[in-house]
Write a protein that binds this DNA or RNA. Structure first.
Lengths: 377, 377
DNA sequence: GTATCGGAGGAAAGCGCTTTCCTGTCGGAC
DNA sequence: GTCCGACAGGAAAGCGCTTTCCTCCGATAC
């Protein structure tokens, strides 16, 4: 009998929430039946007239010596049958944890695609398959992905991107990660200082401080901030740096001049509109990431407001587009690719997950053409 | 002969400190053999004092009814042990092929990240894990990834991106894909018309023709082309469209005005330099993708050449940045996200791989500010 | 000549899970 | 009171592979 359709009648247990949620979703998916025509090792062995053991040895280049004649027969059978070993069976028989998983908010966001590029590079150098998971900033999905990656027996998990101000989530996430580590998995986090374990943490606060000093130093007094989602720790950290700079230079950063939006181009464009409408006297806008800054630039241009003559704009991250927009964006550089590289090295470094290894990554101010002194009036 | 019950060889955890017992077992286990202390279904069953069969049924929500009490015990054990089933074992026991693989040139290239976003969306909706593989335009790596994905038993493979002018590679690639399909896998290609099977193919030739007509129609006579790598069919196809437009408008597109480079921003910047140096009289540059166009814009700006007053620039693809550079890029829009969506739908549509289903995707000219009539001289 | 060793190849045990098959029990019909 | 079916739960058979472990053989040593 084929698999029983376990659709709706199934009483939904709820204990390990995410695990079941995932199973549930998978079940809803169209269930592709198993492949009938898969060629197995046994087929190869049969055709080569040897035992499966011998076939396996030849194929894996085992240390054990196999007579040339048999070897040739096996190889030919492999070729003829276009045999490809079943990775799942291999993984079961010889637990080899070779893949690595990364959980990002969205690979199509340049911030993450740069990081991913770094991760990828190192993973590839080590002959590892990189499994990329997009959470789209949904904490629940992040939790699910940890389970999924763990189920896939990946060698390491790299959660990248901002943390959330949500102690329940943080606790759950940490617990899952910990459980994963207990089974021998490695974890290297990028940019989430609230997590335990190895981490690569960018200088969000310090970078923003630099940026703040630059803008305030230029003489701006009425500056608006285009911030990311309130729940993200990255937003908070960068905001903190800006506040410190304001304090030190004796300026103000009142709450009404901070508007929160999506960490995206459109989020930035919308936020800039709000700022323009509510605070007409602004001479500078600091966006908490480059995408938002680009959006702000677009809004400003639409309104015929000159940058930097009327209003200065600054971003954060120094994503590739930052230098191609006009005016080229003044921003804070985070070595994104480098961060990916370091995180993956951490994740792949062997040895037991002992003392958490935390690497700080410095931020650097990049002055370009979108900022200047405030207009004289 | 029946296999010996493994329960014997496993130390029976003492009831209270099971977790600790497990950690201990992990430590005792061979350090190098990958997964030391993984919690197995048997552990859960033992702790819940039920058989593995029952535990499995509870966890998977099998149709078979399980007494409430046992169900609760199992669920609690799962919770306490933080059990996550081994996906490999599951896949072996019940081959369900739920993951899907995509092979792209580079996810950090916006062209691919948009496509990937579309693929991802549909995959997620179907409860599928998407495995993203970057070939970095290395044909060998592409071949390897097909094997790897097949070994991983993915339900479908989506090779995205341009094909190569390399008949040997094409043959090999096709053969591998065919072999994969024979084992029940699905294949949906994006943009490789030389491949067999389901495909989503963008109107490269027609799009370029549109673009050519636009530029020639504006009155340009000396136009340079910034082309991608010669080996890519995408380059050839787009070039063909341009040539057709030239023919129809009675213009020339001499080989010396076509410069080939990497399909990247820097490739475009370099190509633009060559063009400026070798063909000073150019009034327009058509780049075969947006990234290259952005690079060209940067070069032109550096040289103080005004766009579009001195030289018009056009791109291809309509990647998100296209509208944010200045001047905003005139380009040809390909509905990238949509293409990903359609390809994934094709890949996930069940039924045997019958008659290849090929979907043509139209291109649309997007007029923005980087193009205009040639300067009067 | 026999006892021994080494090495090549095959048999079989598992890896962790699902699912079929089987067993034991209980309730109801007769 | 007996018999049957229904059903809950456990035993066990794989899934495809790797890796012992074993067997068999010829070669070497005595």
């Amino acid at each position: 009998m084929p698999r029983c359709p376990r659709g709706k009648s199934r009483p939904v247990p709820r204990s390990p929430g995410t695990l079941l949620a995932m199973a549930e979703r998978a079940r809803r998916a169209d269930e592709h039946a198993a492949p009938p025509g898969a060629v197995t090792l046994a087929d190869v062995a049969r055709r080569a007239r040897v035992s499966p053991s011998t076939a396996s040895r030849v194929i894996n280049g085992s240390a054990k010596h196999v007579a040339e004649e048999l070897r040739v027969r096996v190889l030919r059978a492999v070729e003829e049958l276009r045999y490809v070993p079943n990775a799942h069976a291999q993984n079961l028989a010889r637990p080899k944890r070779s893949a690595v998983g990364v959980i990002v908010h969205d690979v199509s966001d340049p911030y993450f695609s740069e990081i991913t590029r770094g991760l990828q590079r190192v993973a590839t150098d080590h002959g590892r398959l990189l499994v990329i998971c997009n959470s789209y900033r949904d904490p629940v999905r992040e939790l699910e992905y940890v389970e999924l990656l763990r189920a896939q027996q990946v060698a390491a998990i790299v959660p990248a991107g901002s943390g959330y101000h949500d102690s329940r989530f943080t606790r759950d996430f940490n617990a899952k990660l910990r459980a994963y580590e207990q089974t021998g998995g490695r974890v290297a986090v990028i940019g989430r200082h609230e997590m335990v374990g190895d981490a690569v943490v960018p200088a969000n606060e310090a970078g923003a401080y630099l940026l703040g000093m630059e803008v305030f130093g230029l003489g701006h007094r009425r500056v608006g901030v285009i911030a990311g989602p309130r729940v993200l720790t990255t937003t908070t950290d960068r905001l903190a740096g800006l506040r410190r700079a304001a304090r030190e230079t004796g300026r103000q950063l009142p709450a009404r001049r901070i508007v929160y939006g999506d960490f995206s181009r459109d989020g930035g464009a919308a936020a800039a509109q709000v700022l323009i409408a509510d605070e007409p006297g602004l001479t500078a806008m600091i966006a908490l990431n480059d995408s938002m800054a680009v959006g702000a630039l677009a809004t400003l241009r639409e309104r015929g407001i000159e940058v930097p003559d009327d209003v200065s704009v600054a971003g954060f991250d120094d994503v590739p587009i930052a230098r191609d927009v006009i005016p080229a964006l003044t921003t804070v550089r985070l070595p994104l690719v480098e961060m990916g590289i370091r995180a993956m090295k951490l994740a792949l470094s062997d040895g037991p997950a002992g003392v958490p290894h935390v690497e700080q990554v410095a931020a650097e101010l990049i002055r370009r053409h979108s900022s200047g002194p405030p207009p004289q009036d």
